[in-house]
Write a protein that binds this DNA or RNA. Structure first.
Length: 192
DNA sequence: GGTAGGATGGGCT
DNA sequence: GCCCATCCTACCC
């Protein structure tokens, strides 16, 4: 497995981290996925960010040190994975929106029995947490810790790709900001 | 091919 | 009480 991304990788603005996370490998237990779609949520000037109204029990981790997981529960049924960016004391995170399944695909299929194609296993923020076995018990997990439950690794054999920038999916405020990024032409993106 | 609506519960006013 | 960073099914071309 290629090296784990160090904390300094995450200690930058969320837009830079979001763009640079594309193509990296997310590992959870026996499952591995390549990150193909992300959204940035800013610490200031972004009314769509959960951190926009300050520190609460839910949002505390977003204001903590970078390189940790922020996992939240949504629509009574699903969980979404974010990665905390920016130095401790400031807010900023990246929502992981889609993965290309790389390893543990049989296990992903067991966890997502309704998915017909491999591309459907993790092509959405709620789908990928199910496929990878990620839930709220991972909230606050340190992604830079070796032997941790959730890690992000450099992609050793990554081919070059173009990045497409759009507005974010499913939000009502600050909707005009161009903060969604995905790998051009990838078949596992949620909304191509 | 497309879309409208339901499921389901925690967070916050 | 309302909103929500979603997903799936049913139903209609």
């Amino acid at each position: 497995m290629p090296p784990i991304l160090p904390r300094k990788f995450y200690a930058r603005d969320p837009v830079s981290v979001a763009q640079d996370l594309l193509g990296k490998l997310l590992v959870s237990g026996q499952t591995t996925g390549r990150i193909v779609e992300v959204e940035a949520y800013l610490g200031t000037g972004d009314q769509a960010a959960h951190s926009a109204r300050g520190i609460t029990d839910r949002t505390r981790v977003i204001f903590g040190p970078p390189g940790h997981a922020y996992v939240y529960f949504i629509y009574g049924m699903y969980e979404c994975l974010n990665i905390v960016t920016s130095p401790a004391g400031t807010a900023g995170c990246v929502l992981i929106r889609a993965l290309e399944p790389i390893a543990g695909i049989d296990l992903m299929r067991e966890r997502r029995p309704r998915a017909k194609r491999i591309e459907d296993l993790a092509n959405g923020p709620g789908k990928l947490t199910l496929a990878m076995g990620i839930d709220r018990s991972r909230n606050g997990a340190d992604l830079t810790r070796r032997a941790g439950p959730l890690t992000v690794h450099n992609a050793s054999t990554a081919l070059p790709f173009d990045i497409v920038t759009t507005t974010r999916i499913g939000i009502g405020v600050s909707a005009e900001l161009p903060l969604r990024f995905y790998i051009a032409g990838n078949s596992c993106v949620s909304v191509p």
